[in-house]
Each structure stands twice: as C-alpha cells, then as structure tokens.
Simulated scan of single mutants.
Amino acid sequence: MTLLVPEHIVTARLILRPFREEDWQDLHHYYSCAEATTFTVGRPLSEGETWRTLCGMIGHWSLRGYGPYAVEEKASGVVVGTVGFWYPNDWPGPEIKWALAPAYWGRGLASEAARAVHRVGLSHLPDIALISFIHAQNTASIRLARALGASLKREVEFRGANWHIYEHAKVPQ
C-alpha cells in the first residue's frame, strides 16, 4: 500500500517515526502501567502483549496507509509513547491518538506531537474527518483534545463504558 502521510515528523523536541521492533521495551513503560492504561486497553499488558500491540501498530500502516508514530524524545533517544493516526475495524472513525508513559506526562510532549500529527492530517488526509475517541472519564485526554481545537460530537457506549467522540477542526490550532 502507498503511504498517505509522511513516515517522519520532526518537532522542536520530538521525532515521530515508524516503530521498530526494539521500541517495544520503551513502549512497555506505558503498556505495563495500570494508571496509564486505565482508559485505553483497560489493564497493564505483559511484555508479550506489548510486543504484539507494537506489531499491530506497525501493521496498521500497511493496511491503512497511515498509522501511529513512535514518539522519540530527541534529547534522550527514548521512545516515550505513541501519537498518530489510528483506525481499528471497531472504531467509529479515523482518529488522532496519543499515549505517553507516565514519566513524560505534564511536559507538553503529547500536545506537541498531536499538534504536528493534526497538521499532517490536514495537509495529507484533507477528506478524512479525524476524531479522538476518548473514555468519558479521561479528563487529561479530553483537555488535550479541546486544546487541539476538537469539539465533542457525541457520546457512545463502547466496551461497557461511556466514550466521547471529539471531532478535530479542519484548521490547525
């Protein structure tokens, strides 16, 4: 499949790039944390589950032509999480997702990466209405979605919980 978006995005502090197999160890800092996964996968993952999740994100690029990026901090070279495009078969639409390891929360890194991804989406996927699909109790992600200019479109029941669909603006924020 032809890629619909660039494979690399560079911001002031970050490199957004395709995942590599060895990234699973850094990514596991997110996926093994109960607090971090409460509103996403719902529980901490084992090392094997994190590796398989990484494989799914890599495969997403082949199936959709876009996907989640590894978020590498320039200063340290550490993969701090994932931000990018995500559209599993049971999702209500293509989304901009973000998930960083707790050690990197509160530094504005998710915002920096998500804004860059939003700009790429506007320029390379102009006909796709991008959303962010957020558990109703995930106040931090709701704040970020609103800061990115997204507005609440509707609420839905998903996997036994209330989720919000935020639609991203068609202009950069």
Rank of each mutant, 00 (worst) to 15 (best):
residue 155 E to L: 04
residue 68 P to R: 15
residue 39 F to P: 01
residue 155 E to A: 11
residue 79 V to P: 08
residue 58 I to M: 15
residue 123 S to K: 12
residue 80 V to W: 11
residue 59 G to E: 12
residue 15 I to Y: 03
residue 36 A to E: 05
residue 80 V to F: 03
residue 103 A to S: 15
residue 23 D to W: 05
residue 67 G to Y: 14
residue 64 R to C: 15
residue 115 R to L: 00
residue 39 F to R: 00
residue 39 F to C: 02
residue 17 R to T: 00
residue 6 P to A: 03
residue 66 Y to P: 04
residue 72 E to W: 00
residue 57 M to N: 10
residue 108 G to M: 11
residue 1 M to K: 08
residue 147 A to F: 02
residue 160 G to K: 11
residue 30 Y to C: 05
residue 128 I to N: 02
residue 64 R to K: 15
residue 134 I to W: 08
residue 34 A to G: 05
residue 151 S to E: 13
residue 163 W to N: 12
residue 160 G to V: 06
residue 135 H to R: 06
residue 87 Y to K: 09
residue 44 P to G: 06
residue 42 G to K: 00
residue 159 R to H: 12
residue 78 V to C: 11
residue 6 P to K: 02
residue 169 A to T: 14
residue 35 E to R: 12
residue 27 L to V: 02
residue 120 V to F: 00
residue 10 V to I: 12
residue 22 E to V: 06
residue 53 T to L: 12
residue 65 G to Y: 13
residue 123 S to P: 01
residue 96 I to Y: 09
residue 92 P to S: 11
residue 53 T to C: 08
residue 8 H to V: 15
residue 42 G to L: 01
residue 105 W to N: 13
residue 30 Y to S: 13
residue 74 K to I: 08
residue 80 V to H: 09
residue 29 H to F: 10
residue 146 R to N: 09
residue 155 E to T: 14
residue 166 Y to I: 11
residue 111 S to Q: 10
residue 170 K to S: 14
residue 11 T to S: 04
residue 42 G to P: 08
residue 129 A to H: 08
residue 150 A to I: 05
residue 79 V to Y: 06
residue 86 W to M: 12
residue 120 V to S: 11
residue 17 R to N: 04
residue 27 L to M: 15
residue 133 F to Y: 07
residue 166 Y to E: 01
residue 81 G to P: 11
residue 64 R to D: 10
residue 101 A to P: 10
residue 83 V to H: 04
residue 163 W to Y: 14
residue 150 A to G: 06
residue 25 Q to N: 04
residue 165 I to P: 10
residue 73 E to Q: 15
residue 75 A to L: 11
residue 166 Y to C: 03
residue 14 L to E: 01
residue 19 F to E: 03
residue 15 I to M: 05
residue 80 V to P: 06
residue 12 A to G: 04
residue 40 T to C: 04
residue 122 L to C: 07
residue 10 V to H: 07
residue 48 G to R: 13
residue 36 A to W: 00
residue 82 T to Q: 13
residue 37 T to G: 03
residue 8 H to C: 05
residue 50 T to V: 09
residue 142 I to N: 03
residue 56 G to C: 09
residue 106 G to P: 12
residue 59 G to D: 12
residue 50 T to R: 09
residue 14 L to F: 01
residue 89 N to L: 11
